[in-house]
Design a protein around this nucleic acid. Structure first.
Lengths: 254, 254
DNA sequence: CCAAAAGTGTTAATATTACACCCATGA
DNA sequence: TCATGGGTGTAATATTAACACTTTTGG
């Protein structure tokens, strides 16, 4: 059974859904030198929103987040970090959702809960390798600069703010930014990512030395060609070295 | 209305409870040179468990955690950190809870959900200033060394493991260990806390210099008296200095 | 050739580590 | 007095920050 019309009572009567437990996914990417977040375009009379949805009764919320991200954006196989659960009693209301349903459908709705808590997940993805397709709902997804977000549904603005904080904290424990880059990348490319996400300029020499001292990237003989100016060396993440560094309790602070 | 008997149908029929959303509180303290966690003694045929309970329909889970901690241990005014939500579909089952209810009560039970997710909170407290009273349930609470935990209900062992990890991570961003100490404390006392919680020995001289470089504690003229050996200086947390340090993006890594 | 980007060198200041040394105290 | 814990000194090493210098490239 594939139910993809939120405006029908059939959707809300799926018994396998926990109607008071949802997940919301904050997908980040870096594009045009900016940190961006993926939003679904408004539907009905709502605002933009994070890809999110309700958790099934027999489902881990990690799975729910993956499933819902796939349903609503077509994106698969992304590692999502659970970062916080949002539970303000007033954060969400079904009122605003069903306000514009057909009366016939409203009459068939199940008893809806007073409140919905939402478990927030975030991920950093390479927008080059991610191709939102709209998924089952055929929704339009757009990347928004985090500095200039549109109006958002419910408490989604707040969820994004907290996700950014969690992302920056996570950087201290997981040097994951190379995931946004091709397998082979240059130090200046990595530096630019750090600068964009941390929101500040870093010194080139100091950055290189610090990152290389982590000893988790290996320099290749190759250089990036076809670019203007001096050709930078290419580096590659080395999983074995990374394990070693982790065991030393390394902290990857920038 | 005060309902404190979990074995009655009346408890489970409170309409204001979200029966599929609970909170669990992991209270840590340091005692006898060990990191300890507070557990409620077994009731019915269950094992030890974390103080926890169901969230009310009009309640933020932060409030729920405070309320439940108070109900089950008598402890009030503790700042609880939300650290993770646990949602494995098999993590909790009502079966094992109601197995030994009177049949008359079982017949009156409402429809119970298939699964319960739990939002985990932790706090570090000074056991000298905290006096568990059993709360409404008059349960027995005991501090357990984290190295030698008894058998625990559901996934509470896992929740504790994750809470310890979260606590250690949190130390990098919040130098909160002085909260476990009297207003005035000595550096060796603080060092001992760090050693116990991080689980490793630290060098005395290096520890002092590093901590003092954070510039968030001020040395008093007084020394701790009445102790064996050389009398150590007393220090005091300085909230104003702390704010300044935070604004510098200080990281409090040890 | 030149501007710009990238790699590398340099230096001073600061931090880290692992001790050694001395001091003060109660037993 | 003496073992012990606590404060401080020290020296080798490592890290950091800021900047200068050199190399390389496409335009």
């Amino acid at each position: 059974m594939k139910i993809n019309d939120l405006t029908t009572a059939a959707f809300w009567n799926q018994t396998k859904m926990e109607l008071n437990i949802s997940v919301d996914c904050v997908l980040f990417t870096v594009m045009d030198q900016k940190l961006k977040v993926m939003l679904n375009a408004p539907f009905m009379d709502m605002e933009h929103s994070l890809p999110g949805g309700f958790v099934h009764s027999d489902e881990h919320t990690d799975e729910a987040a993956s499933r819902i991200l796939h349903q609503r954006t077509g994106i698969q196989n992304i590692y999502l970090n659970q970062f916080k659960t949002f539970s303000d009693p007033g954060r969400f209301s079904f009122e605003s959702l069903i306000r514009h349903f057909d009366q016939a459908e409203v009459d068939k709705l199940p008893k809806l809960p007073d409140r919905v808590i939402s478990i927030g997940y975030f991920a950093l993805v390479d927008s080059e390798q991610i191709h939102p397709s709209g998924g089952d709902f055929q929704e339009i997804t757009t990347w928004f600069n985090i500095e200039v977000l549109p109006s958002l549904n419910f408490d989604h603005k707040n969820i994004i703010t907290e996700a950014i904080e969690a992302l920056r904290k996570e950087l201290h424990f997981n040097p994951v930014l190379h995931n946004l880059l091709p397998k082979k990348f240059t130090m200046p490319e990595l530096q630019r990512l750090y600068e964009i996400i941390l929101g500040k300029k870093l010194d080139r020499g100091s950055f290189q030395r610090k990152v290389l001292r982590w000893d988790i990237f290996e320099r290749l003989e190759e250089r990036r060609t076809g670019v203007a100016h001096k050709q930078p060396f290419l580096y590659r993440f080395n999983a074995k070295k990374y394990q070693g560094a982790l065991n030393n309790g390394l902290h990857f602070a920038i």
